[in-house]
Nucleic acid binder design. Structure first.
Lengths: 335, 335
DNA sequence: TTTAGCACTCCGCAGAAGAGAGTGCTAACT
DNA sequence: AGTTAGCACTCTCTTCTGCGGAGTGCTAAA
């Protein structure tokens, strides 16, 4: 794999990313100043094909990068994209708002990324189960409803209204919350789950039910729908590889299915990762690529961020964006 | 328009709804026990076409209902569908949970309707601007953040965290909330908007900024994204009229665009309404139909519920479902 | 080692032919 | 007078064929 082959591969992939059409030797010679003739290029391309970096859709069509070709491109060739000032500003200012709710961050991030990349984007919230409880409190709202507010040590806030026995006045609620917080502060919600079945101690037996409810809510809250946010799904319709409705259904279906989210979030390790085509082992997205990143919130509790596009994705732009956004997100979540 | 023509039109529309293929006289004679020959049916169909109820895609194809034909079907012919016991149960139990947040109801409703109808469904929250304030309170969360909780007289709860000046301790916040509530209870959020620019009275001048913030939040909160919920967009991919990606993009784009939502919610009056094809005046959905309904929450504050599908929609099923759901939703929102 | 030339392959498109479905009209039937 | 059978006609959709274009691989020359 000499320098010329590399430059050739780069040019070919760039062209294919731009046009979605198999690239021929003539085109390559004309559009990119490689200083060699089509015939030479043909020889090189034959070599690259033999090495597995290129494929031919059929004899006498141009070449198309193979998964291995993209992989080499991503790992060895591509240079990180430099984002516009405007884009960097946009990322920097994306989170400058008063809101501190987790689902807002998730949602905002997904939208930001899908708009910058022009691909669908999915953001998975850090599993609440791994956060540690900092504070639980109740705010009475009416005769039998309270607002339960959960703060994690990461500074995130989640709240939800719920029905409670109506003999719980404000004082009792405050006491209950105090007890709860004192008892469980600093404990991960994961561990808290185990306490649910424990016999309850102390003088709060009367409100065992509410106590259980609170525990249940706290520990199961991450089963809710705002745990993951999908933005810009329609972006894929702009790419010619998705002119077939069947394919659109498969891919968007994949993104909507929660199973995919869960699997995906377990699948990827820290940092920015690129998964190309068949590398992903999910049938529905065999000819798509993923760019994923993790973000931190407080300790080593991490969430996931994911961009899905055709295999001829703008890998350098997408990885740069995804990296910048995930860093910014980690930063604001930390503060 | 005699009885036979009506029965014919009914059979034809039923068949077209089921098959999406232009219906010929032979098919009609064979599949539906009308007791007349294809030739007679042809005569009748020619009449119906002249009257504007049917159309021919081209000479010598079967007939297809026109907008006017669907309209007549919806208004005069179709009988309301009877829902399964299972479906009725599902509607009845859809809202039996502890949660009382508006966006949860919205979300849940959209999902319920799209799953029952197998079409995309959109639910628009009642504009908060028309709700009246019942109660505003703050819950301190940290040095400089509070959770603002808004209760409307309809019993809905909305909450959001925000940053505040950090010399506001719990007592001052409580006082502020008390003042705010006393001052503005029973006033619609619409009217509240005007107060923002008023010079502030009383002894709370110091916290003018927060006061303004609270007002601003309360009055502008309905600009948020959880005001409207879209569910089941991918359902349209199951219908052959959406095998063209361009069309899919137009229609789903329409559903995602907020302008469409706003226009739509202003466009429709109370009760269950059917809008067929070109009746809607929106370019992007000229060959779709809408079924809409309103729901009440407390007073005459209404939200909207919308199902979108191809013109050959199962009108009777969809209207029945939409009606049942909107009634149930109104009922639970009232309690 | 590179390049020009050339025969070859394969796709995609356009036009033609044929099948199929459905119509409208006419004439016979009840 | 209304209904039906028969039939010619129309139009679409599919299949097939032929052809141009794009691109290749190979050979031979530079």
């Amino acid at each position: 794999m000499d320098t010329r082959k590399r430059r050739l591969l780069e040019a070919l992939i760039d062209d294919y990313i731009a046009t979605a059409e198999p690239v021929g030797s003539r085109t390559l010679a004309r559009k990119y100043g490689l200083g060699i003739s089509p015939a030479t290029i043909r020889n090189e391309m034959a070599d690259l094909e033999e090495l597995g970096y290129l494929e031919q859709p059929h004899t006498s069509a141009g070449r198309v990068p193979s998964d291995k070709g993209y992989r080499y491109y991503v790992d060895e060739i591509m240079r990180p994209a430099i984002l516009d000032l405007e884009e960097r500003e946009r990322i920097r200012h994306a989170y400058q708002v008063r809101v501190r709710e987790l689902h807002w961050f998730i949602h905002q991030t997904a939208r930001l990324v899908s708009e910058l990349t022009q691909y669908p984007s999915l953001v998975v919230a850090p599993p609440l189960a791994q956060a540690t409880l900092s504070d639980l409190s109740f705010m009475p709202l009416g005769a039998d409803t309270v607002l339960m507010v959960l703060k994690t040590s990461g500074g995130m806030v989640e709240s939800q209204t719920m029905l409670v026995p109506d003999d719980l006045d404000e004082e009792k609620l405050a006491l209950l919350a105090q007890d709860f917080t004192r008892e469980f502060r600093g404990i991960s919600l994961e561990e808290l789950k185990d306490r649910i079945l424990d016999p309850l101690q102390g003088d709060i037996n009367r409100y065992q039910e509410l106590w259980q409810l609170a525990l249940k809510w706290v520990t199961e809250h991450d089963g809710e729908e705002d745990k993951v946010s999908l933005a810009g799904p329609l972006n894929i319709l702009n790419y010619p590889e998705f002119k077939d409705v069947e394919k659109v259904r498969r891919v968007l279906g994949f993104l909507e299915r929660e199973t995919a989210v869960e699997l995906a979030s377990r699948y990827f390790s820290e940092g920015v990762q690129v998964v190309i085509g068949a590398e992903s082992a999910f049938d529905d997205i065999q000819d798509c690529s993923l760019v994923t990143a993790t973000y931190r919130s407080g300790g080593n509790v991490v969430g996931h961020l994911l961009v899905l596009g055709p295999k001829r994705m703008h890998y350098n732009r997408v990885t740069s964006i995804v990296e910048a956004v995930s860093e910014e997100l980690s930063r604001v979540l930390h503060g």
